[in-house]
Simulated scan of single mutants.
Amino acid sequence: MKTIAIIPARGGSKRIPEKNIQFLGELPLLAHSILYAQENSDIIEDIYVSTDDAEIKKIAVQFGAKVIDRPVSLSGDLEPTVSALKHVLESINSNVENVVLLQATNPLRPQNLLKEVFEKYQEDNLDSIFTVSGNHQKFGKIVNNKFQPFNYTIGQRSQDLEPLFFENGLLYITKASLILNDIIISENAFPFEVNHIFAQVDIDTSDDLDYARYLYQKQ
């Protein structure tokens, strides 16, 4: 029973054309996640890129990943990530126990993060684990042109807030059996807290990409 990494990377992207192969430093975004998986070869046995795009496929092979051709029916804007993961598992002839999901749009990760998360996953015999980060901002809603605080009371200090958390997308580890049932984050999934500046990088817009490039140069 083995652990594999899957990197979904479809070709269609409306906000940033060819987003997954835009350069961050000297490497395409996709390559950063492939190399991260390779650096953790003591955990990850095989690396698969799921794509519908010929250029992405070429780059994936160039950097040493295996490619699963994603059908058009699973490559639309509204198609959930789990469908790509499930398609990979159904396409390979391998006895996979664990899947590490690495998103190309989260190219910057703390060096030892996967080792720490996988250790927790194994020690606690979890079926699913994913990374989250705390947020100490004051949130609210605007209803009928009036602001309604959500997680605080007016006048409360930011440092006194009970923190909210967000799914930062750095990595996910899930039993393959769950993915085959269309689940990435189970009801019992463990939220692994990551307080690192890289958790703020999730590339969806050109501003996100500019910020990632700034951090990459700085780090």
Rank of each mutant, 00 (worst) to 15 (best):
M1K: 12
A5K: 01
I6S: 00
I7G: 00
R10N: 11
G11F: 13
E18W: 05
K19M: 11
I21W: 02
F23H: 12
G25W: 08
G25Y: 05
E26W: 05
L30G: 01
L30V: 09
A31V: 15
S33F: 04
I34Q: 02
L35W: 00
Y36K: 03
E39L: 10
E39Q: 12
N40L: 10
N40H: 13
S41P: 06
D42Y: 06
D42L: 08
V49S: 10
D53M: 05
E55D: 14
E55M: 14
K57M: 11
G64P: 03
K66F: 10
K66E: 13
I68L: 05
D69C: 06
R70P: 00
R70Y: 08
P71Y: 06
P71F: 07
S73L: 09
L74Y: 07
L74W: 05
L85A: 04
K86C: 07
H87C: 07
H87T: 07
V88W: 01
L89G: 03
L89H: 06
L89S: 08
S91T: 15
N95D: 15
E97F: 03
N98S: 11
N98W: 02
V99A: 01
L102Y: 04
A104M: 09
A104T: 12
T105F: 00
N106M: 09
N106Q: 10
P110L: 04
L113Y: 07
L113Q: 10
L114A: 05
V117R: 00
V117Q: 02
K120I: 14
D124I: 10
D124F: 15
N125K: 14
N125M: 11
N125F: 09
L126T: 01
S128N: 04
S128V: 03
I129R: 02
I129S: 03
I129M: 09
F130V: 03
V132Q: 01
Q137M: 12
K138A: 13
K138D: 07
K138G: 09
K138I: 08
F139S: 05
I142F: 10
N145K: 15
F147A: 07
F147D: 04
Q148N: 14
N151E: 05
N151K: 07
Y152H: 14
T153K: 15
T153Q: 15
I154W: 11
G155L: 08
P163T: 08
L164F: 10
E167V: 12
N168S: 06
N168A: 06
G169H: 04
L170W: 01
L171T: 05
Y172T: 02
I173Q: 00
I173P: 00
T174C: 08
I179R: 00
N181K: 13
D182G: 05
I183M: 07
N188I: 07
A189G: 09
F190H: 13
A199K: 01
D202W: 09
D204I: 14
T205Y: 07
L209K: 02
D210Q: 15
A212E: 07
Q217R: 13
Q217P: 01
Q217N: 14
K218Y: 12
